[in-house]
Simulated assay, not measured.
Amino acid sequence: MTFEQLKPQVTSIISNSKLNVDDRLLGICQLLEANVPHYNWVGFYFKNGDKNELKLGPYVGEPTDHTIIPFGKGICGQVAVSNQNFVVPDVSAQDNYIACSITVKAEIVIPIFVNGENIGQIDIDSNTPDPFSSEDERFLEFVCENVAQIL
């Protein structure tokens, strides 16, 4: 399924007010993991109150021990500080990488902004080397913009 075909489904999940926010976020994770072959772990991290750390939100994929990530640590922690997209074609080439699974080869993290503040991010791991393109980035920015509307 193409990203353009997924967009209306993302919008539909986000606008389903019968579901609580976490269930909608989980629905997004399930949709992406099931329909994008190189998305093997899809999850959300959010700023943990006033602490300089991220807390794991809804996700789909292998269980992770990384439920709390300090700002600046790993790819997710770096995005929390930089406020920039981070595409990692080869995780083994990153010094500041937190390994969740030996099968992960690449990662993409896109921040979520609410009223100009970085309040969280979508994090995607891939077991495929260098799978992410600018199309992935644009699509995930679309997802994050939509998610921001319900946070």
Rank of each mutant, 00 (worst) to 15 (best):
V60K: 14
D123R: 08
E137L: 12
I102M: 07
S12H: 09
F139T: 07
F142A: 10
E62P: 05
K7E: 15
F46D: 00
V91C: 02
T64A: 07
D95E: 14
V10F: 03
M1Y: 10
F44V: 02
N83D: 15
P131E: 05
F142D: 12
T11M: 04
E145C: 09
Q9T: 13
I69K: 03
K47I: 14
D95S: 09
H38V: 10
V109H: 03
V81K: 12
G120M: 07
V91L: 03
G120Q: 08
V104I: 10
D90A: 11
L31G: 02
K105N: 07
K18M: 13
E33R: 14
W41R: 09
V42F: 09
I98G: 07
Y45C: 05
E33H: 08
P89G: 03
L26Q: 13
V104D: 10
I108P: 00
I28V: 15
D50A: 08
T11R: 04
V21Y: 08
T2I: 07
K73D: 15
G57R: 09
P111I: 12
V114T: 05
L19I: 01
K7D: 06
L26E: 09
V104G: 00
N96V: 06
F86M: 13
E145T: 08
G72L: 13
G72H: 08
I112P: 10
K55S: 12
I150V: 10
Q5S: 10
K18C: 07
V60W: 02
G77D: 12
C144V: 11
N83M: 04
P70S: 12
D22R: 08
K7R: 15
C76N: 04
Q84C: 08
G120V: 03
I14F: 04
K47Y: 00
E33K: 15
Q149Y: 02
L151P: 00
V79W: 11
I122Y: 03
I98K: 07
F142P: 10
N127I: 04
A106Q: 07
F44L: 05
P8D: 05
A34H: 03
W41I: 08
I68H: 14
V79T: 03
P89F: 01
V143H: 03
C144G: 13
L31S: 04
T67I: 14
L32W: 02
S126E: 06
V114A: 07
P89A: 00
K51L: 11
Y45H: 04
P37G: 09
G27S: 13
E145Q: 15
L151G: 05
Y45R: 02
T67C: 01
W41G: 01
I75E: 01
G120Y: 06
F46P: 01
D130S: 14
L25G: 07
F3Y: 15
F3K: 06
I150Y: 11
G57P: 13
E135D: 15
C144H: 00
L32N: 11
V81E: 12
E53V: 09
N48V: 00
P58T: 13
P63R: 12
E117W: 02
E141A: 06
A80C: 12
N20H: 13
